[in-house]
Design a binder for these strands. Structure first.
Lengths: 113, 113
DNA sequence: AAATTATACATAGAACCACGAGGTATGTCA
DNA sequence: TGACATACCTCGTGGTTCTATGTATAATTT
């Protein structure tokens, strides 16, 4: 009966992070954890394939930039195409979560929760 | 870029349907579609394996009952154990959807949506 | 100075989950 | 009698995320 918190809607979250500013992978993981109050602890094994996929589909563009520390980081930038995709995904999330909530509201056992 | 509406959180939805009354499989599909304004059109290939899993884990119990038409239907009943599981899942959904919304709120590009 | 931790990127394999496609069968209506 | 809605079920596939692992550098601790 153990509950495993799967991410899902990963693309939506990743794109929404990049809507504010360009970020590099590691930063996105830390930021996502912070903004979600540590509900989401995305793994590298999840993030990087997603980023590469978004890059292939033209939603993001990557460029390298040296950090003050001397390390080279790979930043990702949201393209116009990616911004449009983000809006789509956000709308889909509204629909999806709204539908779940509607079903739950029809369930008497959960009101006093 | 096509958006595929995956169900996910299927167990939660199935359990919440059974919290109100006993139902049989086909009925659950119809009810879920109705309550979600047709956002969720669960497939038999999704529902029946889930129901069998819930039965194995003791969250639901099945019994057969003849319909007025003469057909025998398989009804599912939520057990006490299943009700507890439902509460857990509902809380997990609150946490999850709350976290997604928190991340989206931090995203400037989506406010005028 | 050495060891550990945090930073930073990446991939391959395993596991899970929902779906599509298909199968079986009965009741109803034209 | 043919079509359609009802009603149940399973198998194989594909997509998605995780675990595990690998590489490498900077910062911190011992």
């Amino acid at each position: 009966m153990a509950r495993k918190q799967t991410m899902d809607h990963t693309q939506l979250l990743v794109l929404s992070l990049l809507a504010g500013e360009d970020m590099y992978g590691y930063q996105m993981i830390v930021e996502l954890a912070r903004r979600s109050d540590h509900t989401f602890e995305m793994k590298e094994g999840t993030l990087y394939p997603v980023l590469h996929g978004l890059e292939r589909s033209g939603a993001v563009e990557a460029y390298e930039q040296e950090a003050p520390t001397g390390r080279v980081r790979k930043y990702y930038h949201l393209t116009r195409r990616g911004a449009a995709f983000l809006k789509e995904e956000a709308r889909a999330w509204q629909t999806y979560s709204g539908a779940v909530n509607a079903v739950l509201r029809a369930c008497p056992a959960l009101d006093p929760a």
